[in-house]
Design a protein around this nucleic acid. Sequence first.
DNA 1: GAGCCACTTGTCATATTATAACACTTCTCG
DNA 2: CGAGAAGTGTTATAATATGACAAGTGGCTC
Lengths: 170, 170
Amino acid sequence: MTSGSSNISTDVPLGFERHDHAACVSEGLLAAETRCADDGLRFTPVRRKVLEILLQEHRALGAYVILDRLREEGFGSQPPVAYRALDFLVTHGLAHKIERLNAFIACAHPDQIHAPAFMICRLCDSVAEAQSRTSRSVLASAAKATGFRIERTVVEAEGLCPGCAEQADA
Amino acid sequence: MTSGSSNISTDVPLGFERHDHAACVSEGLLAAETRCADDGLRFTPVRRKVLEILLQEHRALGAYVILDRLREEGFGSQPPVAYRALDFLVTHGLAHKIERLNAFIACAHPDQIHAPAFMICRLCDSVAEAQSRTSRSVLASAAKATGFRIERTVVEAEGLCPGCAEQADA
DNA sequence: GAGCCACTTGTCATATTATAACACTTCTCG
DNA sequence: CGAGAAGTGTTATAATATGACAAGTGGCTC
């Protein structure tokens, strides 16, 4: 994703790094298509559009922002339309909910097993997804000690992204 | 808190372990009082009552549940009353918000520096707070690698507590 | 291809969580 | 004591999320 190659479509440091952002969208959609085909899931127009909307930003979007965009594109405009598509994407690992923000973001690693961790910039709102091995976490050891059986984890850090931290220091 | 001593007031395994629960409440309130006195904070009746309500359970309570109890006790009954008290408690480390549940829980370690991690049982709703050192976490290394400056972390695991896991297996 | 089924979409209605703004009171500190 | 800051209570409203039901769509068997 960090693109050693071609056309940088934006120089905003989204996901904290410059990259070929157009590729994020197309690759993301392609990965989702493949995945759905493989797993016998229906990648319908609404679902596709919602993922596309999410992929367009390395930020978390609220359900109602997504809903507005869906309306503009001619889809249904009532909350369940957005929530159901988001639910589908989250359930199948194509998107994640950022609990801290009550908002949603496209998955950056739809191929791998995901116990994702996020870094959320409180100034520019960008969100980066880190790959995480659950096993060596604080949670894993605490869970082991008490006998808790982990099914899902929420790991989110709030703070300043590299760019904003630099500006803040200046 | 695991009480080598006296009267077990309930045998429900709250916080996943049997313990002298009456002591949780009184010790919690005492710790808060001390802390507020030390730091020149006002531990007013509403704030005290909200903390007491939270301490009575090793579960996260929604703001509106708390609000109902406040009303029963003769306090104001509009949302801001509860939210302001909760905000005070969270700001000063006497309570935490469980983002996954949009709900609140009393801090189990009000004395220490807190980068807490929680284990949430999806069946019995109990929540245990683990002590965590942020430093060796997935987040810390990801942050270091990208230059992200962490200010606050949310670490929550959802799954089955020891008791519920056992029942589920049976 | 007709009929059946599961799934998806769209809508209305409503629940749940959270905050803005303002008047009034209480506490603190000079 | 008086001025200002902090806290409380209220009204009103915003933002987030779900339940229930009707209608449409696609894939299936026979």
